[in-house]
């Protein structure tokens, strides 16, 4: 990726945990995060019994979680699981109904504006000003954080390079593609050199190429020690970006861990997917029994969980079963979710 500026340098040589911009954008942030070297630090975000209710509807039901400094933390779950409501509470734009929430050691109910000054937010719904130019969107946003015009402009130029929109600086937002708008929103969220970057469904609705470019940029931020908190209903996104995640379903957290540990705990190493011709799957009963460690029958296919997917495939052949297609793959978070809730993640 040929981005300009200091953002592309990464931390491969030093590996020191640093905010992405402290090296270049330090004028407004004289206090570098020196304390970040200590591993056993208090969590950046801590929630206990966190609850959000809208009248009779409970969107978030007494959830607990901690996010550590420099961590990349995800909320995985289907639409309506309560991810966005949780994010809005962390973003200090939606009052906590019940429970405790602490962000950067501060309480959102009394210190909302102060916390928001340290957050970068990429909302699910675009809120770019389509009537302003790409650069002005960043500059005015910097002004909201109290940057002077010159500093806001300097950061805007740098960040536009980072998200590869430098050449579009003077264009209007209107003609930008979905992927470009998301990148611009990410650049905007970085204008205050945030301690925590909140991303709500960052790649929903983007084409695969745009998603990968976005992931690559986020990965770079993660490498530089930015704490990322994101929601997604794409398991590949969660596997790509998250060090640790919680699976949410119906306003509650149903599992928590690293992608790998969740797969180990709730799934098997490999999955053999069998698709049978129309009408055949329903007739199969005993023929499938005993295959692998566990079997899930979905409406359109059968999933066989095992340590060795190829061995299962061989067994299927040996039993004389003829699948239309047979696929052996690594187990994914999708399988974890299916195991935990009995439903697929995206429907």
């Amino acid at each position: 990726m040929g981005s300009g500026g200091r953002f592309s340098l990464g931390t491969a040589n030093g590996g020191s945990i640093k905010s992405p911009m402290t090296d270049t954008l330090d004028t407004a942030a004289p206090a570098a995060p020196t304390a970040s070297a200590a591993p056993a630090q208090a969590p950046l975000i801590s929630a206990r019994g966190l609850t959000k209710r809208f009248a009779a509807f409970t969107a978030v039901d007494a959830i607990d979680f901690d996010v550590a400094q420099g961590e990349s933390f995800g909320f995985l779950g289907p639409n309506g699981a309560g991810k966005t409501s949780t994010m809005r509470m962390i973003g200090c734009v939606s009052p906590v109904t019940e429970g405790k929430l602490s962000i950067l050691g501060l309480d959102p109910t009394t210190d909302g504006p102060r916390i928001r000054g340290r957050l970068g937010v990429v909302p699910q719904e675009d809120s770019l000003d389509t009537e302003l130019s790409v650069r002005d969107n960043l500059v005015i946003y910097g002004r909201y954080f109290g940057l002077n015009r010159a500093e806001a402009t300097r950061r805007a130029v740098e960040l536009l390079d980072f998200v590869q929109l430098g050449e579009r600086a003077k264009d209007k937002v209107e003609p930008l593609s979905g992927g470009m708008r998301r990148r611009l929103t990410i650049a905007r969220a970085l204008i205050n050199d945030p301690s925590i970057l909140l991303l709500d469904e960052p790649t929903t609705g983007l084409d695969p190429q745009a998603r990968h470019l976005l992931w690559e940029r986020l990965y770079r931020l993660k490498q530089r020690g930015v704490t990322l908190v994101l929601t997604t209903h794409y398991m590949d996104e969660a596997e790509q970006l998250c060090d640790r995640l919680v699976v949410m379903d119906k306003a509650k957290i149903v599992a928590e861990g690293s992608p790998r540990s969740l797969i180990e705990r709730y799934s098997s190493r490999e999955v053999t997917e069998l698709r049978f011709p129309a009408g055949v799957q329903e007739t199969l009963g005993a023929e499938l029994e005993g295959l692998g460690d566990r079997i899930d029958r979905l409406p359109d296919r059968v999933l066989v969980y095992s340590e060795d997917g190829e061995a299962v495939a061989a067994q299927v052949h040996a039993r004389g079963l003829v699948a239309e297609t047979m696929l052996v793959r690594r187990s994914s978070l999708e399988d974890v979710f299916l195991r935990l809730t009995g439903r697929t993640l995206v429907d």
């Binding site: 905010s19 402290t22 407004a28 942030a29 004289p30 206090a31 570098a32 995060p33 020196t34 304390a35 630090q41 208090a42 950067l104 050691g105 501060l106 309480d107 009394t110 210190d111 504006p113 102060r114 000054g117 340290r118 909201y144 954080f145 109290g146 940057l147 205050n192 050199d193 301690s195």
Partner: peptide, 24 residues
């Protein structure tokens, strides 16, 4: 306003708190 937990006072402080009029 509540007093911040000390350990974060010196943490990435960055942007100072804004006055109402600066925000306006």
């Amino acid at each position: 306003m509540a007093v911040a937990t000390p350990s974060f006072e010196s943490a990435p402080a960055g942007v100072p708190e804004r006055s109402y009029f600066a925000s306006v």
